[in-house]
Design a protein around this nucleic acid. Structure first.
Lengths: 279, 279
DNA sequence: CGCGAGCTTGATGCCGATCAATGCATGTGG
DNA sequence: CCACATGCATTGATCGGCATCAAGCTCGCG
C-alpha cells in the first residue's frame, strides 16, 4: 500500500496546489458552533479575495470573462466564510441573499420532508456554486451542509445581478451555470427513475471521478467525503445496499474499497453499467 | 354521470376563457408532419402576439413587469408556433436558440438514455416555460413533445438576455423561473428517492390539481393529458403500477377514475399520503 | 482501553417489476 | 355499419431486487 496516510483533515486527495489546512488563514472569531444548530455561524473574513488571482477561476463563475470583467467581479466577491465539518452554510427557510462558490472543502445539499425523510440533492466540490434554490422564493428551499472543513466565497446576489446587467458575458455565464444545474438534476431523475442499484452507484462514481479529474486529481484513486448513508440518500438507496454494491464491485475486481478510500480498477466496467446515462 | 362528453380535442377541461380549438387562428402553412420525425416542423405564425394583452401574463414570464417593460417584451416575442399532438417542439442535440412559453396545450419533456430507457422529466401546461435545458451547452439536452395540439410563444433567448440587461425586473423574473425549476426538480428527486408508489401518485395528482387551480380550473375534476406509461416514467414506476394505484384510490373512495377522466373525492387523503413533500 | 459512529454481512419479507390475458375506446377500410 | 386493427388500460400470477431487521466488525478518539 503506497498512499495510506490518514492525514486527518485533508480537503481533497492529492490536492495539487492548495494547502490541506483549510483554516490556515482564517481567524477563528467565533466559537465552533454545533453542527445542525440553527443559529447561523458567523465566521466571515474581510480579507480581500480576488477572482482574478484565484486558481479556481477556470472552474468557477468567472469562466470566460475578460480581465476587465473579472476585476469588476472582484469588487463584488469580497468576503469568504469558513465552515467546520457538519456546519450548515444555509438552511431551509433562511432568507436568500447570496450565492456561494466553494473554495475548499465539500458540501451536500438536502431537502427534507415533513416526516423526517430527507433526500440529498447534490454534492458540491471546489469551484462549484451553491444557493440557486433560493432565488425563486427569496428563501432557501434546502440545507447546504459542509462535509468537511470548508471555505466559500460569498457572492451577494443582488450585486451579481446588477453586474451581469453590465457584462453580457457574466450574465451568460450565470445562466449557463443555472441551466447546467437543471440538466444535472434531469440526469439524477433518470438515474433515480430507471436505474438499478449498481448502475446508480456506477454512475455516481463516474461522475465523481470525472469532476475530480477536471480538478487535476487522478480519477482512479479517491477518498469519499460522505457516508454510505449520504450516498444512499442521493441515489435513492439504503446504506446497506450501497455497501453491498461496493463489496460486489470489489469482488468483481472493478473497485478497491477500503472504507472511504476507493481505487477504480476497471473504469470500463463502470462505464458499461451505465451505458445509458445522458451526456 | 353529468360531464362525460368526450369532446375529442379539448385543450384543458373547463377552460374558462380560452377557445377549445387551438388552431382556430393558425394558418396551416405546412402539411402536418409525422410525430417523432426528426425534421423540425416549421409552422410559425408571423401574426403579432402581445404579452401585454395575453391573458396568461399573470402566469407567464411577464409576471411583475411594468407596462413599459412588457411592451418591450412584446417586441421580442414575435412569433408563435403550433404543434400537433405527438410533434416535438425540440429534440436532444438541437441547437438552442429560444425559450418557449406554452400558450395552449400540454407538453412533456424527457431525457433518453443510450439503451432506450427514457425518463419524463416534467409536464408543462399553459403559461409555463420550456427550453432552459439548452442554455448551458447551447444545445437542447432533452426532447419536448406536445401531448395534445398546442401553441407556444417563441422567445429568442439572445434577445431576452439583452432585454433583461436593460430591465432588472425582467432579469429577476427570469432568474426566479429558472430557480423554481431547480427547486421543482429537487422535489421530484425527493419523490423518486424516498416515496412509495401511492405516495408518488398522490404527490403527482396534488401538484397537477394545484397548477390547474392556479389556471382557474376546478381542482377536483380533471382530464389527464398523458398516458399511464408517461405518468409512470415521470414517477419512476411501471404503467401497471400506476394503473393499480389508480384502482386502489378508486376502491378507497379517494378518486373516481374513468380512463383519463379523474375526479378527486377526498383530497385530504391524498394530502395525508404525501405529508412529507417539501413546499 | 472501551466507546460509538460508520461499515459490512446475513436472513427474511415485501413492494413493485414482469409476464400474460382481457377489456375498452377510437379509428379505418371493406 | 360492421369487422378488425390499434393503442391504452385493467387485472391477475409470479418473481426478483431492494428494504428491513439483526448481528458483528473496524477504526478513530476521548
Amino acid at each position: 500500500m503506497s498512499n495510506n496516510r490518514p492525514t486527518g483533515q485533508q480537503t481533497l486527495p492529492n490536492m495539487p496546489t492548495h494547502p490541506t489546512q483549510t483554516d490556515r488563514d482564517a481567524a477563528p472569531v467565533a466559537p465552533a458552533p454545533r453542527a445542525g444548530a440553527n443559529v447561523v455561524p458567523i465566521r466571515r473574513e474581510a480579507l480581500k479575495v480576488a477572482c482574478s488571482s484565484c486558481n479556481l477561476r477556470e472552474l468557477c463563475l468567472p469562466v470566460g470573462l475578460s480581465d476587465g470583467e473579472m476585476q469588476r467581479l472582484d469588487t463584488l466577491v469580497e468576503s469568504r466564510r469558513s465552515l467546520r465539518r457538519g456546519e450548515s452554510l444555509y438552511t431551509f427557510g433562511e432568507v436568500f441573499k447570496s450565492l456561494y462558490a466553494v473554495r475548499t472543502g465539500f458540501f451536500k445539499t438536502r431537502v427534507a420532508a415533513a416526516d423526517g425523510r430527507d433526500q440529498v440533492t447534490g454534492f458540491q466540490m471546489t469551484g462549484e456554486l451553491l444557493g440557486f434554490d433560493g432565488i425563486g422564493t427569496e428563501r432557501h428551499t434546502c440545507d447546504a451542509v459542509a462535509l468537511e472543513d470548508s471555505q466559500v466565497c460569498v457572492i451577494p446576489f443582488a450585486q451579481l445581478e446588477a453586474l451581469s446587467r453590465q457584462f453580457g458575458e457574466l450574465q451568460r455565464q450565470l445562466h449557463k451555470v443555472m441551466s447546467r444545474e437543471i440538466v444535472r438534476d434531469h440526469g439524477v431523475m433518470l438515474l433515480l427513475g430507471s436505474m438499478r442499484a449498481e448502475e446508480r452507484l456506477a454512475a455516481f462514481l463516474l461522475n465523481l471521478t470525472q469532476r475530480l479529474q477536471a480538478r487535476g486529481f487522478s480519477g482512479s484513486s479517491l477518498v469519499l467525503r460522505m457516508t454510505r448513508e449520504e450516498i444512499g440518500s442521493y441515489l435513492g438507496l439504503k446504506l446497506e445496499t450501497v455497501s453491498r454494491a461496493f463489496s460486489k464491485f470489489q469482488d468483481e475486481g472493478v473497485l478497491e474499497v477500503k472504507q472511504r478510500q476507493l481505487r477504480v480498477l476497471n473504469e470500463d466496467a463502470l462505464r458499461q453499467l451505465v451505458s445509458g446515462t445522458v451526456c
